[in-house]
Design a protein around this nucleic acid. Structure first.
Lengths: 334, 334
DNA sequence: CTGAAAGCGCTTACAG
DNA sequence: CTGAAAGCGCTTACAG
């Protein structure tokens, strides 16, 4: 139905080899022939069949991207930047949102593998599960067939590459700031046991230790529910005393803001709050949220640039760390 | 390098035709043969080459999706739902974010066409430009080769299908509520001249007329900037008097909330605010935002279901309208 | 500079 | 139930 290379060949009075050459910019075509073919191609609105090309090249010029949920602000932003960069290289992508448990992540990655993507980008350290050998074995297996780029997670493997935010340091810096501004009872809220969450917790603890503040297990709370439930949960914990909160995501920080509002506490006076990711939310919410900017833009671009280098045959680093920085807004008084 | 159908054929001692049959579930294979082949396939981890299959079937079982920006809350949510539904049918998708001007939208749609997607989903009436013949001609052209499904925009064409939110009615309902609660000077904020924005404006005007309130051109303001600029812009317009605001997106409503805060106005007492889209934002923001829920979930599912029907060869309706409903929260007092 | 031919990995009538 | 062969629409040595 659609016009093929044979049609154009017939119409131009040359062989399909020649058509292929002009399509692919091969210089071994006379100007006269090239022009004629080009004009016929335009006239008949010819587009090479991408499936046939893929079969030849064994590539669709596509990368597979998986993240837990595209309606998450942070992921969406990341994907958005990656896409733009990919397009600059003439690449497209297939997105596969995996959901939040490890099994479905594995499922997503395996499906992407079957699609013969040129490379895989996994966004979030949760793709590593708890990081134990057993939970990451699927990645080693997949990496035998396609290079994997993990954003925010690292795994030792010849075909796995990582771009990592320095969450440990960022959280350490944030906690230190809080302490310097006089806060002593800092609540740490996290929403998963991912490697990245643990890094953040590590940074938090280090800052406390340095300041001689004992680490109180009660002040580290894992919260996986929605913002309103988080607020209510906090309201119920009347035993809890804190004058500041560090959270591993901006969303968690919003729950805290709602809690403060319900208790008529003043932010940042009674409670200081620092979120994480510096998402749009942090600017929209009132009061506007102080948040760690993990430099998503830089990470996303680095990933794509590295993929292209690798596909070109260049050597690339297996692990790149990107520093974040704290964006001060109205939920802190430093 | 990867194992092909030839390898499996050789290993199983049958022809490639038979392998193909068991892969595709063709019943014309003896149980004995099938089992042997299946076990060999598993042993060698065989996956049919998707490029070769695509070439045969002239389909990758993929739909192309374009929206202006995936980091927009509303779009991301829509894509997320569409994806889940597509996966249920065994389909994948390629996403192409177009940006906000008509030229780049046309560019995105044309690229998706070249990729030979089975169908195209365009999210947002902005793909229709101003709706004039001239601005939609590219769609008619593309629709000659691939069915197009427009979410929130309608276009008369044998191969274009629409699922539309009843924006006119939703906005009419919202305005009416505001009027019934005593508001007379209702500001209308919109961010584009899209068909959908115009529908919303129409609903707003109808409600005013019905209540005998003259339509004041000064109270209809187009705002395309960021929330903080929107706030400042509103602060500068000291001539403006209003006791309620209707906006065409939740983001615009957030600018209003920031304005109210800067002016120390009480929401909903001094100003009532109604947003549009019922995005996550509306729950996160303080005070929580009353917003129109355009039933994105229903729209997204309808689109996918209809695509599948069409691809199966069924007749489907060219235009489906989905009603929205108002979600009351804390920025209104009705 | 150009063309004939083989090949990419599959599917599917057709014949048996 | 099974296989040989043609074909899907391209690209690319190879020969001229």
């Amino acid at each position: 139905m659609a016009v093929t290379i044979y049609d154009i060949a017939r119409l131009s009075g040359v062989s399909i080899a020649t058509i292929s050459r002009v399509v692919n910019g091969n210089p071994n075509v006379s100007d006269k022939t090239r022009e004629r073919v080009l004009s016929i191609m335009k006239e008949y609105d010819y587009t090479p069949n991408p499936f046939a090309r893929s079969l030849q090249f064994n590539s669709m010029k596509m990368v597979g991207i998986s993240c837990s949920d595209i309606s998450d602000d942070y992921m969406a932003n990341m994907v958005s930047i990656i896409e733009k960069r990919l397009h600059e290289y003439g690449y497209d992508y297939m997105l596969f949102c995996s959901g939040y448990d490890l099994n479905s992540r594995e499922h997503a990655v395996n499906l992407l593998l079957k699609k013969k993507m040129d490379a895989l980008i996994l966004i979030g350290s949760q793709f590593l599960g708890n990081g134990q050998e057993e939970e990451v074995s699927y990645l080693h297996k997949v990496a035998k067939n396609v290079p994997i780029f993990i954003i925010n997670g690292a795994l030792e493997d010849p075909n796995i590459y990582s771009v990592i935010a320095d969450d440990y340091k960022s959280m350490y810096d944030a906690a230190k700031k809080l302490i310097e501004s006089g806060r002593r009872k800092i609540l740490f809220l996290y929403d998963s046991d991912s490697v990245s969450s643990m890094q953040k917790m590590g940074g938090y603890e280090k800052a406390l230790k340095e300041a001689g503040i004992p680490i109180d297990g009660n002040l580290k709370i894992k919260i996986t529910c929605k913002v309103h439930e988080e607020r209510d949960l906090l309201l119920l914990r009347k035993d809890l005393e804190f004058d500041a909160v560090l959270t591993t995501t901006d969303k968690l920080a919003i729950g805290v803001i709602k809690y403060a509002k319900a208790k008529k506490l003043d932010i940042p006076k009674d409670i200081s709050v620092v979120g994480y990711n510096n998402s749009y939310l942090s600017e929209y919410i009132e009061p506007e949220l102080t948040s760690v900017d993990p430099s998503a833009k830089k990470m996303a671009k680095t990933v794509v640039d590295n993929i292209m280098k690798l596909l070109k045959g260049d050597e690339i680093e297996h692990r790149i760390t990107v520093e974040g920085n704290l964006i001060k807004r109205c939920t802190t008084d430093f």
